[in-house]
Computed example of a mutant assay.
Amino acid sequence: MTPREPDHAARHAVRAEGGADRAAVAALHTAAFGDDGHVAALVEALRPAPLSFVATDGGRVVGHVVLSPARLDAPRRLVDVLTLSPLAVLPSHQGRGLGTRLIAHALAAADAAGAPLVFLEGPPDYYGARGFDRADEHGFRSPSLRIPPAAFQVARLGGHEPWMTGTFVYPDVFWALDCVGLRDPEA
């Protein structure tokens, strides 16, 4: 550990998102994703999210993660699962372990709630070091051809059973806001 890490750990707290955090969470996602509010609109459309957490620095919201209900179309039956999306940390606070803490907190909450699986789209090097595996290697099918196979990832939790394989199905809001997969800018 570097001398800075204990100081950061003491200053930063992870807690459930509250109603008073909404504006700060929207601004955070817009800054972190460098977009025109598209991701913030997704977060707003996902409300009320059952599992939504913020990281704070001296009371200021500097990170956010949301877990939303989704489905797995398994051969035996539909399975209620979660999707971790989006995750954001203010650019000025990146590289301090806040994303890692938010992910760990979210996965622990999902496991405690009995969710068997958490899916996401994201960089495999980052999420692979934080409890996620390439989903297709465990019998899961992506909901879109626009998701690179390595980016489609899953965390298998305590409630997972071997028969739980199949196609991941995003909630409708992800489709309505075109937040699934990558768009080809040349198309």
Rank of each mutant, 00 (worst) to 15 (best):
G18F: 14
E17L: 13
R71G: 10
A20P: 10
V61I: 10
A23Q: 14
V173F: 05
A176F: 07
A9K: 12
P86W: 04
P91D: 06
A32P: 15
P162G: 04
V25H: 00
G97V: 08
L82R: 14
P124G: 12
V65C: 05
V66M: 02
F132I: 13
I147V: 15
L120F: 08
D57Y: 06
A70S: 12
C179T: 06
P143D: 09
T2L: 08
G58V: 09
L46M: 08
V173Y: 01
T165K: 12
A113Q: 02
L72R: 15
L51T: 04
G19S: 02
L82E: 13
A31I: 05
A27R: 15
D36M: 04
Q153G: 10
D136T: 05
L87W: 08
R47H: 03
V14A: 04
G97T: 10
A24D: 15
A9Q: 12
P6S: 06
V180A: 01
G19E: 11
A40G: 02
L145A: 15
G99R: 15
R156Q: 11
R4V: 09
L78V: 08
A187P: 03
L107I: 13
S68N: 12
H38E: 11
V81Y: 13
R71V: 06
R156K: 08
D57S: 09
A20K: 06
L28E: 02
V61H: 01
P162Q: 00
E5V: 09
P143I: 11
P148M: 03
R71E: 11
W175F: 09
G139Y: 11
R183V: 14
L145I: 08
A49R: 13
Y126V: 10
L87P: 07
A74M: 11
G131F: 06
G19K: 06
C179Y: 04
V43G: 04
L90E: 02
G95T: 13
V180F: 05
V180Q: 03
A24K: 13
V61T: 03
L157V: 09
S144Y: 01
D184H: 14
F152L: 06
F119I: 01
A106V: 03
D35C: 10
P6A: 07
E186K: 05
Q94A: 08
Q153R: 15
A41H: 05
A41C: 00
D73S: 14
Y127P: 15
R134K: 03
T167N: 10
F53T: 00
C179I: 03
L84A: 12
G114W: 09
V173R: 10
G97N: 01
L78N: 11
A32F: 00
V79H: 09
G37D: 00
A108S: 15
G131S: 07
V81M: 13
G58L: 06
E186V: 04
P50T: 06
V43P: 01
V39P: 08
A13E: 03
P116D: 09
A13F: 05
H93A: 12
F132T: 11
S92F: 09
T30F: 07
P50K: 08
A104Y: 04
T2Y: 07
A26G: 07
S85L: 10
P48M: 08
A32M: 14
S142Y: 06
D57W: 01
E137V: 04
E44W: 05
E44A: 12
A70E: 02
G158V: 14
H93W: 14
G122C: 08
D35Q: 10
R134N: 05
F119R: 00
